[in-house]
C-alpha cells in the first residue's frame, strides 16, 4: 500500500518536473527512510522538547529554581510543587527544567568540539600518511589507555579553583570530556578517509590540479563523515551521562550551577526516605540520553544502504 503510494508520488513528480528535477542525493535517500522510522520521530520530539527546555526554561515553569523554601524541604510531590521539594527546599520540577540547559550544553559542546578536533586530526593523519599518521595513531593509543572517568577526575582536580562562573564550570567539563573523547573520533575519521582516498574520483581531482584543501573539502569529507555523524550523535548522550557522573561525584558542575548530575548528587542522602528527589532528575537524564542514542541509531540505519 505504502509502496504503491510512493510509486504514484514518484510518477507525479516525474510528470510535474519531467525527469529533470528527479535528483536525489544519498542524504535525500536517508531522509526518506528516516521519515518512516518511529524511533526517529519519538527521539526527535523528545530532543526538541529538551532543547526548548534548555533555551527557554521559563516556557515550562514560572517557579524560580533558586528559591528555597526550607520549611518544606524534602516534601513529597503536591499541587504546589509537582515533583516535590529537595533537601534545600528547592522546587524539583523547576530544578529539573533548568538543569536541562547545563546537561545539553555540555553534551552539544563536547560533541561539536570532539567532531571538529577528532575529525580534523583524523582527516589530516589519513591524508598526510607517513610519520604524521603513525604519530597520531600512537597518540590516540595513549589516550585510549586512560579511562574516561579517571582522566576527567584528574583533569577537573588539576583545574579546581579556576573558571568558577556558570559557563566557566561548564567549559571546564566540556574541555575534560573533549580531551578524552577526540581520539576515538579521530580514529574513526582516519579509517573512513583511508577508505575514500584510493577512489578514482580523488585521483581525478588530483589530475585536474585540485589543491589538497579542495580535495579534502569537496571529495573526502562529504564521503567520509557518515560514520562520524552517527557515532557522535550516540556519543552526545554518553557525554551527558558522563557530565552527570562527574557532577554526581562532586567534581563536575558544582552549585550554583543547576544540573541533573548536581541534583542527583544532592538527592543521594534521601535515597531510602525520599526517593522522589532522586527519581525525577534521573528520569530526565535517562530519557535525554536514550533520545540521543535512539536518534543516532535511526540515523545510522538510514545512512546504511544495506539496511534498506
Amino acid at each position: 500500500m505504502s509502496e504503491s503510494a510512493v510509486l504514484v508520488e514518484g510518477a507525479e513528480a516525474q510528470a510535474a518536473g519531467g525527469d529533470v528535477g528527479d535528483a536525489r542525493s544519498l542524504g535525500a535517500d536517508a531522509w526518506r527512510s528516516l521519515r518512516k522510522s518511529p524511533f526517529f520521530w519519538v527521539s526527535a520530539v523528545l530532543i526538541l522538547i529538551f532543547l526548548l527546555m534548555a533555551i527557554w526554561p521559563s516556557l515550562f515553569t514560572s517557579t524560580d529554581p533558586t528559591k528555597a523554601v526550607l520549611k518544606e524541604a524534602r516534601s513529597r510531590p503536591s499541587d504546589a510543587a509537582w515533583f516535590g521539594r529537595d533537601i534545600q527546599g528547592y522546587d524539583i520540577y523547576a530544578r529539573v527544567i533548568y538543569g536541562a540547559r547545563a546537561s545539553i550544553l555540555v553534551g552539544v559542546l563536547t560533541t561539536v568540539f570532539t567532531v571538529l578536533l577528532g575529525g580534523a586530526i583524523g582527516t589530516l593523519a589519513a591524508y598526510a600518511g607517513g610519520w604524521v599518521d603513525s604519530l597520531v595513531s600512537r597518540i590516540t593509543d595513549i589516550f585510549f589507555a586512560i579511562p574516561l572517568l579517571l582522566g576527567a577526575i584528574l583533569f577537573m582536580a588539576a583545574l579546581s579553583g579556576t573558571m568558577t562562573g556558570y559557563f566557566g564550570v561548564i567549559f571546564k567539563v566540556v574541555m575534560a570530556l573533549t580531551l578524552l573523547g577526540w581520539p576515538s573520533l579521530a580514529r574513526l575519521m582516519r579509517s573512513s578517509v583511508l577508505q575514500v582516498l584510493p577512489n578514482d574520483y580523488v585521483q581525478a581531482a588530483r589530475a585536474l590540479g585540485a589543491s589538497p584543501w579542495r580535495i579534502i573539502r569537496s571529495h573526502i569529507i562529504p564521503n567520509a563523515m557518515g560514520p562520524m555523524i552517527v557515532v557522535s550523535t550516540i556519543n552526545l548522550g554518553a557525554y551527558i551521562a558522563a557530565e552527570a557522573t562527574l557532577s554526581f561525584l562532586g567534581i563536575g558542575l558544582t552549585p550554583p550551577v543547576i544540573s541533573w548530575g548536581v541534583s542527583i548528587n544532592d538527592a543521594i542522602v534521601g535515597l531510602r526516605t525520599t526517593p522522589h528527589m532522586l527519581l525525577f532528575p534521573s528520569l530526565f537524564l535517562s530519557i535525554t540520553v536514550l533520545a540521543f542514542i535512539m536518534l543516532g541509531d535511526a540515523i545510522r540505519d538510514a545512512f546504511d544502504p544495506k539496511s534498506r
Partner: peptide, 15 residues
C-alpha cells in the same frame, strides 16, 4: 587529462 577504468569509483557519489 585521464579517464579511469572503473566508472563506479571515478565519480564522486555526493556531487
Amino acid at each position: 587529462q585521464i579517464v579511469f577504468q572503473d566508472p563506479y569509483t571515478s565519480l564522486n557519489p555526493r556531487m
